[in-house]
Amino acid sequence: MEANQSNLKKDSIVIVLFFLALIVVNGILVGTGKLKFGTEGFGIMVAAALTIALYSFLYQDNPIFKMAEHFYVGVATAYLFIVTWYSVILPDVILAWKDVGGTDVWVTISKSLAIIVPTILGLLVYTRLVPRISWVSRITFAAMIGFGAGFAIPNYITSHILKQAKPSMLSLWTAAGPQWGAIVIFVGVITTLVYFFFSVEHKGSIGFIAKVGVWFLMISFGASFGYTVMARVSLLIGRVSFLFGEWIPLIN
């Protein structure tokens, strides 16, 4: 209990100091005219505070980070709600009823069903909140997962097998000479597939081919890793240039 009280006191001090520091820095920036106090200026202050608060996690888990994190979770959840509402529910469930109706009965029925059936399927999932009838939600999952599974079969065969196989089997040698790119891709695909083929023991020539497959895998993992790191670093550069460019104008 005493430890909790002590932690609470420590957390409160950290929070107060953080907000004081922000007030002082923003006060100086506004006072010196480097930051205009308006909708945009206040936005920059908020964005800077949240950025610093989230980066504070790099030191250690702390109350400032937790505050920003929880606030972000709330905003992101509401954003998801709003996007879902305005892009799906409003046009396809509520406003879609305006298009229903007319002289053709069958068109009216089909349009009505196109709204009613998915809505009911969606609502059935809420039976999970009542344990006695929670099994009803399986109907929705079965419809969604069943259709997704069926839809995936032709699409994955097309996009992940047929469309990938064709450019992997280009001419390795043309009138212009050896096509090194095509050779590397062909060898890479075959050796990697051999490495993942566990029905044959990786010994002798198969073992050597599998080993080459591992080298290709390592190059690919290394390249993917490097690319991911640099993508994250570019985001970091973006945030740092925001802090020291837009908020505190130290760099151009």
Binding site: S168, G181, I185, G188, V189, S220
Partner: peptide, 9 residues
Amino acid sequence: YPNMAVKRA
């Protein structure tokens, strides 16, 4: 090239 080959496999 090498990365694409592995991705295809």
